[in-house]
């Protein structure tokens, strides 16, 4: 829930998005604050991807406002949008690595191309290696995306999204299409990134387990693995759940409220708690 005092990172005000006259997001409003984790659940086609693209300014809303770090995207020119986007990391659903570039060039891409990042050319290689080590993918610098497995591509995409150390990271179904073990390691990386850098994290998924991990586990950097949050000291990471249904936001609240809801569509998502 909203931590009072934390600045707003992402705010949707009555946002409606339509394609060819058909609304895919309908009157969506919510606000995410700094340091918070958000899990957006929804069936395929419910508008999860469109929501993230709208937050990045890649898709223009037909009505309503989108504010990122308190700034209205609708009032920005393309150049200013690029500045805002350089402060947001995005992991696309199927990784969206550039096929024609190898992994090193892919991860270096935002460092070289984001104007507001201004990474000196001499530091690029080091930062790329560091980001790839973070996702445990060192040694694949020369490989091309087509040579990697789905899970490795997902890791490379995470490295590319966080190499610039953005304060907000968006993940579009990072575990979709992966086997359960790989899906778990990807989620572990996500939580590692969140806990080691305190980034605001927005996770879109159709798997409730992912949300559950987000809400109840934290990364133990000494042991290098996830552990249940209640066993460790320090404040719990604040996780808010949202449920999208056919473009409408039908639920917003914490995990307990989500699990106690009577609505059939919503409770379908949390039946499979691990």
């Amino acid at each position: 829930m909203a931590e009072t005092g934390s600045p707003s990172v992402l705010r949707f005000e009555n946002v409606t998005v339509s394609f060819d006259g058909e609304a895919v997001l309908r009157d969506v409003s919510f606000e995410a604050f700094e340091g918070e984790s958000r899990v957006i659940l929804g069936a395929a086609g419910s508008g999860k991807t469109v929501l993230l693209k709208t937050a990045l300014g890649l898709v223009q809303p037909d009505s309503g406002r989108v504010l990122v770090f308190g700034k209205d995207l609708g009032k920005m020119r393309e150049g200013q949008l690029f500045d805002i986007r350089s402060r947001i990391g995005m992991v696309f659903q199927e990784s969206a690595l550039f096929d024609s570039l190898n992994i090193e060039e892919n991860v270096a891409y935002p460092l070289r191309n984001q104007k507001s990042i201004r990474c000196p050319a001499g530091e690029v290689h080091g930062r790329v290696e560091q980001a790839l080590d973070f996702v445990e993918l060192g040694g694949t610098l020369e490989k091309f995306p087509a040579e990697l497995s789905g899970g490795m591509r997902r890791r490379a995409a995470i490295a590319r999204a966080v190499v610039t150390a953005p304060p907000l990271v968006l993940y579009d179904s990072p575990s979709a299409g992966l086997d359960p073990i790989t899906a778990h390691t990807i989620m572990a990386l996500l939580i590692k990134e969140r806990d080691m850098t305190q980034t605001t994290t927005i996770l879109v998924t159709y798997r409730y387990q992912d949300g559950n991990l987000m809400a109840n586990f934290r990364y133990n950097s000494k042991q290098g693995r996830l552990e249940p949050a209640r066993h460790s000291d320090g404040p719990l990471p604040c996780t808010t759940f949202m449920v999208l249904r056919e473009g409408r936001l039908v639920f917003e609240g914490d995990q307990d409220r989500l699990e106690s809801t009577a609505d059939e569509y919503i409770s379908k998502f949390c039946k499979h708690r691990e």
Binding site: M90, F92, D99
Partner: peptide, 12 residues
């Protein structure tokens, strides 16, 4: 494959 979107998201 969303590479065009990724390009825009990554500053080009």
């Amino acid at each position: 494959t969303e590479q065009i979107d990724a390009m825009r998201a990554l500053g080009t």
